[in-house]
């Protein structure tokens, strides 16, 4: 067992757990988008960031993704500081500046304070909400859950990422239904933005 402090509570945790699992055990809510307990942690969406320091240098803290950070002795973890809140709001505002079509994201945005009425936004939020065009024409936020479920669980490797940066997208090889796809629907099931639909093909 490992001893560490989360939001002021010193507790013991199983040594194979992550900060996300440890926090949830204490009933602390941490939002996630790219995490799924049956898949390897990815650390991509950055929504689960928490502020972490060690007891040797408590003033020297960093933001780390709780989903991929293992518990370790003497960590001081804070899940709810101003810095953490600001970071999460920024991430969601970036995603909402990408697409506003996803009800799931809008809901999350409201919960975390990223979507507020006019006038209550800070300059960065104001820019992202009102001064830019949408950066993507899909609801996909590139969380990679579909790609990972298809390779790690079903082992079909029927979908993958293509290109990089803003051009990055999820694709099926050669853009037609992959012969390896068994139509299991796992990808659609894990997708946090409901981007994937399963259709019958004859």
């Amino acid at each position: 067992m490992i001893n560490l402090t989360i939001n002021g509570n010193a507790e013991e945790f199983d040594e194979n757990s992550t900060l996300l699992e440890a926090s949830r055990k204490l009933g602390i809510k941490i939002p996630t988008l790219c995490n799924n307990e049956f898949l390897k942690p990815y650390g991509g969406c950055r929504l689960c960031l928490v502020e972490v320091a060690t007891d040797r240098a408590p003033e020297n803290s960093r933001l780390l993704p709780s989903c991929c950070t293992p518990v370790s002795k003497g960590l001081i973890v804070k899940t709810d500081t101003e810095r953490v809140k600001k970071a999460r709001i920024f991430i969601l505002q970036l995603l909402l500046a990408r697409t506003t079509d996803s009800q799931e994201l809008i809901q999350l945005g409201k919960e975390l304070g990223a979507l507020v009425e006019e006038g209550a936004l800070d300059p960065v939020g104001e820019y992202l909400a009102n001064r830019t065009e949408k950066t993507a024409d899909t609801k996909c936020i590139l969380c990679g859950l579909c790609v990972r479920v298809c390779s790690e669980i079903t082992e079909r490797h029927a979908i993958s990422f293509y290109k990089r940066g803003m051009e990055k997208e999820v694709r099926i090889p050669f853009n037609k239904v992959a012969e390896t796809c068994i139509g299991c629907g796992s990808c659609a099931y894990v997708c946090p933005t409901n981007t994937i639909t399963i259709e019958e093909v004859s």
Binding site: G43, G44, C45, R46, F90, I91, L94, L95, A97, R98, Y127, L128, T132, T135, I141, L142, G144, F161, K163, R164, G165, M166, E167, K168
Partner: peptide, 14 residues
Amino acid sequence: SCGKCPPCREGTRH
């Protein structure tokens, strides 16, 4: 940017 995380992928574009 590899495009894995939003701050870099979207933030550098903005």
